[in-house]
Each structure stands twice: as C-alpha cells, then as structure tokens.
C-alpha cells in the first residue's frame, strides 16, 4: 500500500511513520506537514506544506496517489498553535487532503485521529461513553475533531472504503506538546473546588500502534482508545508533589490568565477536563485493534513529572521564524 501521513512532523505522526517504515507491505510512504519529523525516517518522502495552502496540498496528494490516508494533521488548541490557528489548520488540511485523495480513485482505506473530546461533557451526558453514544462536543477542540470525523466518514462512504476514527484519550508523551501535561507540570496548578472527577490519558506510542493496527485491519467506524484506569487532577498533582489551587467560578478566569502568562495556556477542553473529568469506555479497542494500550493512566500521570520537558506552546511559531532566518 501507498500511505500518506498528514501531521507527520509531530510526535505522533513521526512515530507512525517509523512503525510503517519497517513494514514490508508498505510500498511507499509520504508525509505531509508544516515541519519535518525530528528524526529521519528512511523511506519517507517528506512534503513540507502548510495545510492552509490548499493548492499545494492538492498537487502533492495527486502526485503521490496514496491508497491509504492516515490523517493525523489535527491541531490541538494551545499545543502547537493558537486556538484559532488550530481550528483553521485542522479544517483546511482535512478538506484538502481527503478531497484530493477521494478524487484519485486509488484509495482503499482511511484512518483519522480523533479524540474523546467529541463526546463533550454536557450536563446529564454519560461520564464514560462508548462508541454508540452520539457525539455532542462542548468545546472548540471537540467540535473540530467531530468535523474531521464527519468529513472522513463522508469521504469513506462516497468512495466505499473503510474509515476508522480513533478517538484518543488526551495524548501525552515526552516530546508531545500537550497543554494538559504542561499545566500539570507547573509548581502550582488550578483545580476545581467543586469536583475532582477522573480523566484518562494515552501515551503517543500506544496511539501510534493503534493507528497502525487500524490501518492494517481496515477498521471501520469510531474506536475509543484510552489508557486503562484513571486519575483525578488532585491525585495527579499529589503524585508530582505539585500544589493544587482550588478554584471557584470567576477565579478560573484569573487562573487562566496567569497560567497563560507563565507559559501554560489553559484551552477550553483542558478547563472542561479539570472541571468535569474526561473518560471513555475503551473496551472495544482491544477486540477491533487486536491489543489494548500498554501504559495505564496512573503510570502515565506519574511519568509525566519525570519527563525532561514538554514542548512549549510557542513551538510551532518558532519554526517558521528559524526557517525564514
């Protein structure tokens, strides 16, 4: 198969590229992103293109003629870009890549990155939704992910190919620019005074393996992928010997302002996680993907305080400036 990976410059995309690079059934591998992966991938044909440049994306996809698209070009608000840029880049890249791939007539499978943020945390909604629960996002990131899923499913249905939407728990990893991990690593962290509900995490390595498994097995439909177990924000801070600051109502606005000034902005979906928790039923993943994530959520919560660093929020902005220089 000829695999096109979008978002290949990120920690998740580069791991997926390295896993696919070793596979004999992968005939050709192309990566599309605004930056190249940190480590080189032997067979990767790198296409450095901004997703907002629709023409360049269309030309590159048409030229490569992929049979499989792995769409990981999902930009989390305040991870690599500002919330507005994240939504724009995600939407533009999805439309351009999937639209171009669908026109080719060579496509036989699609895998897209999504997240459990698509379920939202509206009052009365189940706390641990499975895939049968109708998505009802309550944050801009959740809505952005749902839009990606809908476009991918519509493309898959038009072309008649299986399309899997992997709904990952909040991703963390040593090189992954996670706004949640960045916030939890601060010395003092705002938490809710009214509730201390659990959330789940997923390591980028487990997410990368899930992508490759979904691609190999031609999984169709949404699949929740989360690390086993759960932790609460207060519990995670105890693990990392951080100071929890209990917040109520309007105090959150001040906390977000101060946190952003200190280099750790709190996007809406992270705020929602702190106030309402974020878990999902990941029991289907083991059966359809063939394996469950290796790292549990409590292990990841402990580990994130030992990692050397988490990528800073302005990482993306620095790269074009360096390149321009």
């Amino acid at each position: 198969m000829r695999v096109l990976i979008t978002g290949v410059g990120g920690a998740l995309g580069s791991r997926v590229a390295r896993l696919l690079d070793r596979r004999p059934d992968v005939e050709a591998l192309a990566g599309l992103d605004i930056v190249a992966p940190g480590r080189s991938v032997r067979r990767l044909d790198m296409l450095v293109i901004d997703p907002l440049d629709r023409r360049a994306v269309l030309a590159a996809v048409t030229h490569f003629a992929p049979t499989a698209v792995v769409h990981l070009g999902i930009y989390e608000p305040d991870a690599r870009s500002t919330p507005r840029e994240a939504v724009e880049r995600t939407a533009a890249g999805t439309v351009a890549v999937l639209g171009a791939a669908a026109e080719l007539g060579t496509l036989d499978r699609i895998v897209v990155r999504s997240g459990i943020e698509v379920y939202g945390r509206r009052r009365g909604s189940p706390m641990t939704p499975d895939e049968s629960v109708r998505p009802d996002p309550t944050t801009p990131f959740g809505r952005s992910l749902l839009r990606v899923e809908q476009l991918a499913m519509a493309t898959g249905a038009d072309v008649g190919v299986p399309t899997s939407a992997l709904r990952f728990g909040p991703l963390v990893g040593p090189e992954f620019p996670s706004p949640l991990a960045r916030l939890l690593r601060m010395r003092a962290v705002p938490v809710s005074a009214m509730a201390d509900l659990p959330f789940q995490l997923l390591h980028t390595d487990d997410a990368a393996r899930a992508v490759v498994d979904a691609l190999e097995r031609r999984v169709d439909g949404p699949v929740n992928v989360v690390g086993a177990g759960a932790v609460t924000a207060f519990q995670a801070l105890r693990m990392g010997r951080r100071i929890p600051l209990r917040m109520l109502g309007p105090q959150w606005s001040l906390a977000r302002l101060v946190s952003a000034r200190l280099g750790s902005p709190v996007p809406d979906h992270v705020l929602e996680l702190l106030q309402r928790g974020r878990t999902a039923d990941g029991s289907r993943a083991a059966s359809v993907l063939g394996r469950a994530p290796l790292r549990s959520t409590p292990d990841l919560a402990r580990a994130l305080f030992t990692w050397h660093e988490v990528q800073p929020a302005d990482w993306l902005k620095l790269v074009p400036e360096e390149e321009a220089a």
Binding site: M127, P198, A230, L237, R238
Partner: peptide, 10 residues
C-alpha cells in the same frame, strides 16, 4: 502520595 486508585467512573 496520590498512590490510591480511582476508576474511570469516579
């Protein structure tokens, strides 16, 4: 130390 268990349902 935070080394207690909480399950995904709280």
């Amino acid at each position: 130390s935070g080394s207690y268990e909480v399950d995904p349902w709280g």
